[in-house]
Amino acid sequence: MVKSMQVDDTDRRILRHLQADPAQSMAALARSANVTEATASRRLERLRQRGILKGQQAVIDWRKLGWEVEVSLRVSLDKTHPHAFDEFSAAAREVPEVIEIQSFLGRVDMRLQVIARDMAHYQEVYRSRILTLPHISDIEALMHIAEIKRGETLPI
């Protein structure tokens, strides 16, 4: 935990406020974090250089773009095959409708977040692109109804 010691309270405060509104100006950030603008930009630059602040990504709301169906697929793999994880992940990366791929320690091996335009489209993606992925031993689906909390902020 040497690396975490390099982040002090001021860094955390600045990141906390930036996280709440990443698009805000340096002046607004400095004001809410109670530091000067020069300090805020110097601290952020240092956090960037050290790879702690890796960047900012736009969040896309797929529903607004007409992708109405979102399903979380929990996949168990056939672990008797030595390359099951790598081959499954590589093949899943080729499916455009897969927006997240996660691997786990636990009851589930992998999770795929899949989006589709409607149920008919989902069925097509599921049958022709998901079920054909290598080394699947079991799949369980969770259909998303609503996002209750989003943003994925860290309690810094």
Binding site: P22, I52, L53, K54, Q57, V59, K64
Partner: peptide, 19 residues
């Protein structure tokens, strides 16, 4: 304005921040 761009997310090194 259409909501397709629904804000931004910071990409942080979780381990370096103690998570």
């Amino acid at each position: 304005e259409s909501g397709a761009l629904a804000g931004r997310r910071l990409i942080l090194d979780h381990a370096a921040l103690g998570f």
